[in-house]
Computed example of a mutant assay.
Amino acid sequence: MSRTIQVGLIGFGLSGRYFHAPFLTVNPHFKLAKVVERHRNEAEAFDSSIQTVRSHKDLLADPAIDLIIVGSPNDTHFPYAKAALEAGKHVLIEKPFANTLEQARDLLELAKQKGLVAIPYQNRRYDADFLTIQQVLRENQLGDVVEYECRYDRYRPDILDSWKEKDPEGGGNLFNLGPHLIDQAIALFGLPQAVSGDVRIIRKGGILDDYFDVKLFYADKRVILKSSMLAVDNSLRYIIHGTKGSFIKHGLDIQEETQRKNILPNTPDWGAEPESQYGTLTTTNGRFTFPSQPGNYHHFYDNLYRAIVGEIPQEVTPEQALAVMRIIELAGESSRTKAVLEF
Rank of each mutant, 00 (worst) to 15 (best):
M1Y: 11
M1D: 13
T4C: 11
T4M: 10
I5S: 04
I5L: 07
I5N: 01
V7I: 06
P22M: 08
P22A: 06
L24Y: 12
N27R: 11
K31Y: 13
K31E: 13
A33N: 11
K34Y: 02
E42L: 14
I50H: 00
H56L: 02
H56R: 12
L60A: 03
P63K: 00
A64V: 11
S72Y: 09
H77E: 10
K89H: 01
E94F: 01
E102P: 08
K112W: 09
A118Q: 09
P120D: 08
Y126C: 05
D127W: 12
G143H: 08
V146M: 12
D153Q: 04
Y155S: 07
P157S: 07
P157N: 10
D161T: 09
P168F: 02
E169N: 15
L177H: 12
I182K: 05
I186K: 02
L188W: 00
G190I: 08
P192G: 04
Q193T: 05
A194Y: 00
I201A: 08
L208R: 03
N234R: 08
Y238A: 08
G242V: 04
G242R: 04
F247K: 07
I248C: 09
T258M: 14
R260E: 12
I263W: 01
L264V: 03
T284D: 15
Q293R: 13
Q293C: 07
R306N: 13
I308L: 01
Q314M: 15
M325E: 12
I328L: 14
G332C: 09
T337R: 13
F343C: 01
F343K: 02
